[in-house]
Design a binder for these strands. Structure first.
Lengths: 206, 206
DNA sequence: CCGAGGCTAATCAAGTTTGACTAATCGGCT
DNA sequence: AGCCGATTAGTCAAACTTGATTAGCCTCGG
């Protein structure tokens, strides 16, 4: 899974109704163009594709109020919301070495209830552990270690990274359980989107 | 950059001459199907594409000696070797959060002279440091930190991961400088390929 | 008042990735 | 002899990604 669908769905959801350029700006605001494949082409493609699949509803809209070609606005459907939460849960639990997916998941984690967030992160820990033993088993065949030469360094790196990610995840769980942040159903949520007229201070250099 | 070209070039190079299925088996032997996009389609595509670009030379070959459709064997060209080393150096120095690329680079690091390997890894450390400050600057705007809510956790994760990778890289540098492994020009290299008739103990489940 | 440059919004072709599928041959079993 | 399943080798369509490009409108200096 790439992070693009989750990012786009999350952005549309926060706006209620958004056109492609708005999504693109939000993702830049979040720095997503730095750590994921959130480039214009991918964003517009994802919007169209998900509209075709019924996850989004496309509204053809009159020419832009601010220059440029006519815009298409998108709204989430019921089905889109389901897909959004499915992707979000997956992003938080599955360890597939893709940091961008996890980043996107963290960005939207507060859309879940606090307990569920913690539970999902604990599941992530379990998955990390599985992966860790898979790696050590795989690369420690009957002949014992040391048969691998420098190839063993690849295993070493993966184990090191799994351990580091585990430590970080534990820290996050502690902070969340300690009451940090505002989760679903806990009142005024944190909003990370740009107002319609606000300039984006973190825009990608163009 | 994805890891596939580097992996395929490296595999072909170790064989001298190889057909797609051989490459595919090697990559499975290295576990690359677990941590990279080394799936059949990608492998065959990369071979064809690189042949078209002049990095590989394709030899149409008689029907397989062991069943299946006729095979095409590939050999590296001069240009392919250049590309291989360029990709390898890039994989070892550039920090673009893609663990698969680094893994591939580590797998072939012994194709370089020992000093160059160390130098490249030191450059990686410098890049990591740059990335780290970029992240902290980016997410610590004039208003001071704490304006970010849970979004700050994304930054936290990236910093944590950069630090962890830095620590691991330092360890690797130390091992290499301590004389570990056999690098280019130091005698009998370690070979990580399968003989023509050897079964692959790590094959992907099919 | 006009044209250069910049912003807004989106498209496009080329390349890449995915996962399922095809097809040929061999070994063994009945 | 006939056939089943495993192995070998590769193909294909559909989806996705990338980077460049288009095109309308606004603003500002000269």
């Amino acid at each position: 899974m790439s992070a693009i669908r989750l990012l786009v769905l999350g952005a549309v959801r926060q706006h209620g109704r958004a056109h492609g350029y708005q999504v693109r700006n939000d993702l830049e605001f979040w720095g997503a163009h730095e750590w994921s494949n959130a480039k214009p082409g991918s964003i517009y493609h994802a919007l169209k594709q998900m509209a075709k699949e019924g996850l989004l509803l496309a509204h053809e809209v009159a020419p832009s109020t601010a220059g440029g070609p006519p815009r298409v606005e998108y709204e989430m459907t019921e089905q889109g919301a389901e897909e959004y939460f499915a992707l979000l849960r997956q992003a938080l639990t599955s360890y597939d070495q893709k940091m961008d997916v996890l980043s996107a998941g963290i960005g939207f984690i507060v859309d879940l209830p606090r307990e569920e967030a913690v539970a999902l992160l604990r599941e992530r820990l379990a998955r990390l552990d599985e992966w860790r033993s898979a790696v050590t088993d795989y690369y420690t065949p009957e002949n014992g270690p040391g048969q691998l030469g420098h190839i063993g360094e690849i295993m070493n790196m993966w184990v090191h990274s799994a351990d580091s990610e585990g430590a970080w995840t534990n820290g996050l769980i502690a902070r969340i359980e300690g009451g940090a942040y505002t989760f679903a159903g806990e009142g005024e949520p944190f909003v990370g989107i740009l107002a319609d007229d606000e300039p984006n201070p973190y825009a990608a250099p163009r």
